[in-house]
Design a protein around this nucleic acid. Structure first.
Lengths: 108, 108
DNA sequence: CGTGTAAGGAATTCTGACACG
DNA sequence: CGTGTAAGGAATTCTGACACG
């Protein structure tokens, strides 16, 4: 529905040390934000975390909010709200699509 | 001149183990292609290789050629030829640009 | 609540070399 | 030429926990 199915932005290939350098956050912080369910890295077979560029950006956003005094709990709530809004939008979009399809199928 | 100055495609953040999984090549092969000057990973302070998605793609191209019996030496030659061709093109492009600028600067 | 740190162990990566062909 | 492998060492990452506040 977007550009690519899974673009470079979404491939989980970056290890935590590199993410730490990229974001300026400590590994401790990065792992803690995962514990609070704000980021969801993949794991290699041996259990090593792998992040995407998208995760890196999300982490920087999180860091900004934390600095502004927002609690991880609130950040999570916000995330969930946004996700729900998106889902609703998709439902509407698909309904519209269905109606259009029905319309054109009848005509032909 | 292109899209972004340094997009996700060009950021060197992937370690050799992950590149090995992504490409299906052994670490030995990946290091050897570097020795033959076909790829140029960055290094962390401690000397760990870091690759970009672009490197990953290049490695898969290299692997295809090797399979077809092309020698690393030839692959390298080819790379150099292409780079030179690009450089020439840029030179022409910049000359043209310069002429256009001169033209419009005179008019104004 | 968010983050630092020391602890012990397991997995990763590095280089130089020998091997095969 | 291209690639596998064993070798020894150094650096990375993991988890659970104690600490401060």
């Amino acid at each position: 529905m977007d550009t690519e199915p899974t673009s470079y932005r979404d491939r989980k290939v970056i290890s935590i040390g590199t993410v730490s350098e990229l974001t300026g956050l400590s590994e401790r912080q990065i792992r803690y934000y995962e514990e609070r369910k704000l980021v969801f890295p993949d794991r290699t077979k041996r259990g090593f975390r792998k992040y995407s560029f998208d995760d890196v950006e999300r982490l920087m956003d999180i860091a900004d909010k934390i600095e502004d005094g927002v609690q991880t709990f609130e950040i999570r709530q916000e995330m969930i709200r946004k996700k729900k809004a998106e889902t609703k939008e998709n439902v509407r979009e698909n309904m519209l699509r269905g109606q259009l399809n029905a319309h054109f199928n009848l005509r032909k």
